[in-house]
Write a protein that binds this DNA or RNA. Structure first.
Lengths: 155, 155
DNA sequence: GGATGCTTCGCAAGCTCATTGCGTGAGGTT
DNA sequence: AACCTCACGCAATGAGCTTGCGAAGCATCC
């Protein structure tokens, strides 16, 4: 399902990445089409899976999720058993927004969202470090947000 | 600026975090209201800034942004001059999705999106390490994605 | 204890927008 | 040159958005 994106498709994607709830007529005007072929392109982009979904972006601070931290995790062993149990545990925690297995200095990198430092500390002590197979955790705590973007770069 | 969220508000936010383009009538049915008060609540949540925006989520792999890496950056000095220039530079790079200043082991943490390892290497060598004041960069390269969520946990 | 004010609900009307079918024109192939 | 294909624009229908208005629940105050 390799769809070739032309300039109009990329324009549509750029606009929808900024405003996922723009009306089709306005989107069409924006990209220089009439509504019907514009909607048809959007539907094709959705069916091809290029547009995965539409979501509302909430203000983290205003819904009690003001702190983002990055945790690096080391496992006791790197076998499939440990990583599988780790994956299952991590998927159950709503605080864990992203989790990747790495093969560098550490074994896993997590982006975790909580209300504040105290909440994070409790999460790390009560849940993260108690997942079987976890050897240690190092945390980078952001003091200030320089940038937070939701738009993938479209070449 | 109603900061107090009741159960229905949280229900609305939960649904909109999953599907930001759900129709208002369906959202209303989902949360057990008629369309008009439901829409009114959504508008209030938007005006209060609790709903920041709506965005389309693209499949990174299908738009040439398949690789996510985490970079930790060390500065030569920690003065305002260096961090300010770093912030400006970082905001100009569309590859940098997130950037935080930290006060732990390193000075800044970045989430960077590129097409592949080669593209990242070029970005790091040509741009990231050339920002004035940057001493060194360490990169954690994910081999596998265990979880990627867009839904903030709502207590 | 009852009246008043406030808030939020549901209903209805008007209007915009989404959706589909169909005809047309441009570009490439035989 | 004729044909085929693809994408566009137009028009009609139906669905959903939006707003004003009256009613019900609830707390406050006289």
């Amino acid at each position: 399902m390799s769809v070739t994106l032309d300039a109009i498709d990329r324009h549509i994607l750029r606009v929808l990445q900024c405003d996922g709830r723009i009306s089709n007529v306005e989107l069409a005007r924006e990209v220089g089409l009439s509504p019907s072929p514009c909607l048809r392109r959007v539907r094709l982009l959705e069916e091809a899976g290029i547009i995965d979904r539409y979501v509302a972006v909430l203000d983290p601070a205003k819904v009690g999720a003001g702190l983002t931290v990055f945790a690096r995790v080391w496992f006791k062993t790197q076998d499939a058993e440990v990583t599988l149990r780790f994956a299952e545990a991590v998927r159950r925690f709503p605080e864990v927004m992203e989790c990747y297995l790495t093969t560098g200095e550490c074994d896993a990198v997590l982006r975790i969202v909580t209300a504040d430092l105290h909440s994070y500390w409790r999460f790390q002590a009560d849940h993260l470090t108690r997942i079987p197979g976890v050897l240690s955790v190092k945390t980078d705590v952001p003091m200030e947000t320089l940038k937070r973007s939701y738009e993938l770069p479209l070449r």
